[in-house]
């Protein structure tokens, strides 16, 4: 069973010629089949955790370890991490002019699976996944994220999640900027992947709203660069009622 282990992770960024530590000792274990919600106020370091796990060059790991099934994730390049099974659904997916969605998906699936998917089954696979996410078929010929609405971008991220079948899915504020219908559609997509039991999910969010659709096994409150409290789904209810104030005091 795939396990992602994060131990005492410290991460810094360079800003204005100064080094700023954002993650200050994160410990977390996510097993295949589990869903962990990471909740926290703005600026607590949630997204930094997501991007550090994916290997964004802006973030420097200063100490700690991250392993996936014992393999050192921090030693891997960004594409190696993806091929090892780490998937990051981004809060702000990037426009890639000149590259069509269909070309992008196929290139990506080829890289992740280690061989080009057979064209006939692939076309069907993509078509069905798009239908489930209520994505217009014409979408396939558009350039990646170019001119996409907020909702389209997030559906496109979840489409990739469904097609690439990672071991660990990190969803960075996938709920932000979505109306209720889009939130439901996107959540259904995430739940389909979770129901396979083959993915560990790290659901990063500011709001409890998405937890009505995606039920977490564990909830962690993130504050000041580390996990301040962990609990079950009931912790989310407490946050809903009381907010993050208790965790941000004395900042």
């Amino acid at each position: 069973m795939a396990t992602l282990e994060i131990r005492d992770l410290h991460v810094s960024v360079e800003a204005d010629n100064a080094t700023k530590e954002i993650l200050k000792g994160v410990d977390l274990t996510v097993k295949q089949g589990e869903t962990h919600a990471i909740m926290g106020p703005n600026g607590s370091g949630k997204s930094t955790l997501a991007y550090s796990l994916a290997g964004h060059p802006k973030y420097t790991v200063t100490s700690g370890t991250v392993t996936l099934d014992g393999e050192d994730v921090l030693e891997m390049s960004v594409d190696e991490r993806a091929r090892a099974g780490v998937f990051l659904a981004m809060q702000y997916p990037v426009e890639v002019p000149g590259v069509s969605v269909s070309n992008f998906l196929r290139t990506s699936a080829t890289a992740i699976r280690g061989e080009a998917p057979k064209l006939r089954t692939w076309v069907k696979e993509v078509k069905e996944a798009m239908e489930r996410l209520r994505i217009d078929p014409a979408f396939a010929e558009r350039n990646v994220n170019e001119g996409f609405s907020g909702g389209e971008k997030k559906r496109h991220e979840i489409l990739q999640l469904e097609l690439l079948k990672p071991k660990m899915a990190i969803l960075d504020e996938t709920d932000s900027g979505l109306d209720v219908d889009a939130l439901r559609t996107v959540s259904e997509g995430v739940n389909r992947v979770r129901e396979t039991g083959e993915v560990g999910t790290l659901l990063i969010t500011h709001y409890t709203r998405i937890l009505r659709y995606i039920k977490p096994d564990h909830v962690h409150v993130f504050a000041k660069g580390r996990i301040a409290e962990s609990g079950g789904a009931e912790l989310a209810d407490k946050l809903e009622a009381e907010g993050y104030e208790a965790y941000t005091k004395g900042a």
Partner: peptide
Amino acid sequence: DEQLFYLMARGIPADE
């Protein structure tokens, strides 16, 4: 660099 990161985060090597 952000485009490169996005594509690489989907398993695609840098040169590709």
